[in-house]
C-alpha cells in the first residue's frame, strides 16, 4: 500500500516531447514508471520513447486508459493543461510547472470545486513541485529516484531539494519511505498538508510522517490543528525560513511573510503544541526520526 501512486498507475505526460518533459519522462521510465501516453497538441499520431503521443487528453484517456497526468507544460499554458486533464476524467493530476500566475491557479481551483460538486472530483498535486514518488513502484516527477528506499515513512513537503535532503537522510538511516509527496511552493495549490496527512493517517503502510514546511501562508498551522485532533501516527517536521526577511519572496512564490502571518515562530509553536517533533537543525532530521521511531519499534516487538 501507499498513497496516490502505485505500480498500476497509468501515467500520461503533458508536454512529453518538450525538453523538460522528454528528459524527465526518460528518467521516470528508467525508474519503472508506467507511462502509457504522451500529449502534445499537433504531435498526435507520433511516438516518443515508443509511447503513443496524442493531440488531446480525451483521446489519450480513451485509447490508453490513462488515469494520472504529469504536467511539464510552460507556465502560460499549464493551468489550461490541468483543466484539460480534469475535464477528460483523469483522477490524479501532478503539475510540475513552476511560475504559473496565481490567478490562473485560483481559476483552476474554482473549476475543480465545481467538478467535485458534480461528482467528478480530481486530486491535484502542485504546481511548482517535484511530484510524487512511491519508492520501488512509481516515480511521477523530477526527484532523483535512487535516493529513495521503500519503507514506511510518509513525507509531504512544500519544497524540492529540501525534500531530497530529508529523504536522503532517512534513507541513510535505513528508514524507507511509503510515498513522498511534493505539494509545491505556490500560494494557491492543489493538495495541502492536511489532505496528504489524512491519506497517510489512513494508509496501513505508513507508520510515521515527515512534514517539511516553510514560511508564508497558514498551511502548517492548519496541519497542526488536524494533527492535534486526528493524527495517531508520529509526525516530525522542519520549517524553513526562520531567518528570512519579512516581505520578501524567498524563491517560492508562497514563501513570503506578510504582516504577522506566516512566520516561522507561529508555525513551530502550532506544531509543537500539536505534539509534533520540530527539528531545528535540518542536518539532524534523519537521526531525530530514527531516534523517535526506535522506542515504538521495541514496544511493538514486546507486545
Amino acid at each position: 500500500m501507499s498513497i496516490l501512486l502505485n505500480k498500476d498507475s497509468k501515467i500520461l505526460v503533458h508536454g512529453m516531447t518538450g525538453a523538460q518533459g522528454s528528459f524527465h519522462s526518460r528518467l521516470c521510465l528508467e525508474y519503472g514508471c508506467n507511462i502509457v501516453a504522451g500529449m502534445t497538441p499537433g504531435k498526435g499520431g507520433t511516438r516518443h520513447f515508443d509511447i503513443p503521443v496524442f493531440n488531446t487528453v480525451k483521446e489519450a484517456v480513451r485509447e490508453t486508459g490513462a488515469d494520472t497526468s504529469l504536467i511539464f507544460v510552460p507556465p502560460p499554458f499549464a493551468a489550461d493543461s490541468i483543466l484539460e486533464a480534469a475535464e477528460a476524467g483523469i483522477k490524479l493530476i501532478i503539475c510540475i510547472t513552476e511560475g504559473i500566475p496565481v490567478l490562473d491557479m485560483a481559476r483552476v481551483k474554482k473549476r475543480l470545486r465545481f467538478l467535485e460538486l458534480e461528482g467528478r472530483g480530481v486530486t491535484l498535486v502542485g504546481p511548482n513541485c517535484p511530484g510524487v514518488i512511491t519508492p520501488g513502484e512509481c516515480k511521477a516527477g523530477i526527484m532523483p529516484g535512487y535516493i529513495h528506499k521503500k519503507g514506511h515513512v510518509g513525507i509531504v513537503s512544500r519544497s524540492g531539494t529540501l525534500t531530497y535532503e530529508a529523504v536522503w537522510q532517512l534513507t541513510s538511516q535505513g528508514l524507507g519511505q511509503s510515498t513522498v509527496v511534493g505539494i509545491g511552493g505556490d500560494p494557491v495549490q492543489g493538495m495541502n498538508f492536511v489532505d496528504v496527512l489524512k491519506m497517510f493517517e489512513a494508509d496501513q503502510d505508513t507508520s510515521a510522517v515527515v512534514m517539511i514546511g516553510e514560511i508564508g501562508g497558514s498551511a502548517e498551522e492548519d496541519a497542526a490543528r488536524f494533527i492535534k485532533a486526528r493524527m495517531t501516527k508520529p509526525v516530525f517536521s522542519f520549517i524553513a525560513g526562520r531567518t528570512a526577511p519579512p516581505g520578501r519572496r524567498m524563491g517560492h512564490a508562497g514563501a513570503i511573510v506578510e504582516g504577522a502571518s506566516g512566520t516561522h515562530a507561529s508555525k513551530v509553536e502550532a506544531l509543537e503544541n500539536a505534539g509534533v517533533t520540530v527539528v531545528e537543525n535540518l542536518s539532524l532530521m534523519g537521526e531525530t526520526v530514527a531516534a523517535g521511531l526506535k522506542p515504538k519499534a521495541k514496544a511493538g516487538k514486546k507486545s
Binding site: S159, G160, E165, E214, I215, A240, T243, G251, N281
Partner: peptide
C-alpha cells in the same frame, strides 16, 4: 532549490 536555500540560511544562523 529555494527551500534548501532558506534552510541553509537558517543553519548558518544556528
Amino acid at each position: 532549490g529555494a527551500g534548501l536555500a532558506m534552510a541553509t540560511l537558517d543553519t548558518v544562523r544556528l
